[in-house]
């Protein structure tokens, strides 16, 4: 019985100065092969200058069903935004 190649998540930096962004996933036997496959699958047209690969099982994700508890606390904190503060019009650009 053969063993299946694990799944890897692929992150690509499209050019220096930009962050790595999630591009998709693929199967590979190990990290080195995941990098090589990622080059062929996701950067055939110069889409990247740097690739990260992470085995999918190592990613812990938040649960969308708990988005309420997770993200709502940020919603009623308007004082974190600059428009919350009243300034006279004479003060331009602050």
């Amino acid at each position: 019985m053969s063993k299946n190649w694990p799944l890897w998540e692929i992150f690509v930096r499209s050019k220096n100065g930009l962050e790595h962004r999630h591009f998709g996933s693929l199967h590979a036997a190990d990290a080195e092969m995941a990098l090589e496959n990622a080059r062929d699958v996701y950067t055939r047209r110069n889409e990247g200058v740097s690739i990260w690969v992470v085995e999918s099982k190592n990613i812990t994700a938040s649960n969308p069903a708990e988005n309420g508890e997770m993200f709502e606390p940020a919603q009623n904190k308007v004082y974190r935004h600059p428009t919350f503060y009243d300034l006279p019009d004479e003060v331009k650009h602050m």
Partner: peptide, 9 residues
């Protein structure tokens, strides 16, 4: 080939 790659890894 797939098996060999996995065994090597």
């Amino acid at each position: 080939v797939r098996d060999a790659a996995m065994a090597y890894a």
